[in-house]
């Protein structure tokens, strides 16, 4: 990430022997440790009941409940997908928070939930999350395993499958949550054509314009992650969001100081980041 902070420049020649001799390795380690400590401190504060800042209201989050409610009234299913993110991907972890939230809503309203997948390992976890939600709602029999579907690991095989499913099953709510690529607009337009309420949450900057044009609500960039944390409603999770915001302020300060120093002819901050 540190390469986002500086222009391409010559890295300092001297590196500490034990570290991989790539740019920003040591600076990256320092940032990782600092943020790790911050997260720990904020979580401890939260656990001890000490005040930590609130996460601001994210408009798209309320839309999930509204959309599931509308699907219930219309007697039509809800569709949720994350395209192709594997189990080791942080976008998938954030997606699971949304999936759990939607699954809980669907289970308590007795609304059918369809989840389409392009990644087989993620699919098995998704199935468990939805099954668990129905179990906790006291309706284990209402869970339909066939509604957790593997489409294809091929981008457009998956896209074709999902667009076809949307046209046939006509979900009243379409949730596109995760990191998307070229399939984003096809999925969102397929949803728009059947009149579904559409909520997108993505960290993919390239797809934001498409979602903004096609969906009713779009959560962009880190709203997607913050939203996932907010859905947890656990102070410990809140703590990590506060820590990331403190780091952000520090990085903005670093950018300003670096710009001023660089303008004055000193490459100190650049060298530091590249170290």
């Amino acid at each position: 990430m540190l390469n986002l902070l500086v222009l391409a420049a010559e890295a300092p020649e001297v590196k500490w022997g034990i570290f991989v001799p790539d740019d920003s390795t040591i600076a990256g380690l320092f940032l990782a440790l600092t943020m790790g400590i911050l997260v720990y401190v904020m979580i401890q504060r939260a656990r001890a009941g000490l005040p930590i800042p609130e996460i601001r209201r994210i408009a798209g989050l309320e839309a999930f409940e509204e959309a599931v409610g509308r699907a219930t009234e219309m007697g039509r299913p809800v569709h949720i997908t994350t395209y192709y993110q594997d189990v080791g991907d942080y976008d998938t972890w954030a997606f699971w928070a949304y999936l759990a939230h939607v699954a809980k809503l669907c289970a308590s309203y007795d609304t059918r939930i369809i989840n389409t997948n392009s990644e087989w390992l993620t699919m098995t976890v998704n199935e468990e999350i939805i099954r668990q939600a129905y179990l906790e709602a006291g309706r284990p029999d209402a869970f339909i395993p066939d509604d957790v579907r593997f489409m294809s690991d091929w981008q457009f095989g998956y896209t074709m499958g999902v667009a076809g499913m949307i046209a046939r099953e006509k979900p009243a709510a379409n949730f596109l949550v995760g990191y998307f690529y070229a399939e984003s607009l096809i999925l969102a337009e397929a949803g728009a054509l059947v009149g579904a309420i559409q909520v997108a949450a993505t960290s993919s900057t390239a797809q934001i314009p498409f979602f903004v044009a096609s969906c009713d609500y779009t959560m962009i960039g880190e709203e997607f992650y913050a939203g996932a944390a907010a859905l947890s409603k656990e102070p410990v999770i809140y703590g990590s969001v506060v820590a990331q915001d403190i780091t952000r302020v520090a990085l903005v300060a670093l950018i300003i100081i670096g710009t001023l120093l660089n303008t004055a002819g000193s490459s100190f901050v650049i060298d530091l980041i590249k170290f």
Partner: peptide, 25 residues
């Protein structure tokens, strides 16, 4: 990061790649 990197990109990804070009990455 310190290699000479050149990219052929689909049009939809170009706005996302422009900052790496501007930064010289």
């Amino acid at each position: 990061p310190d290699y000479e990197i050149y990219v052929g990109n689909v049009a939809v990804q170009v706005p996302g790649a422009m900052n790496t070009l501007r930064a010289g990455q």
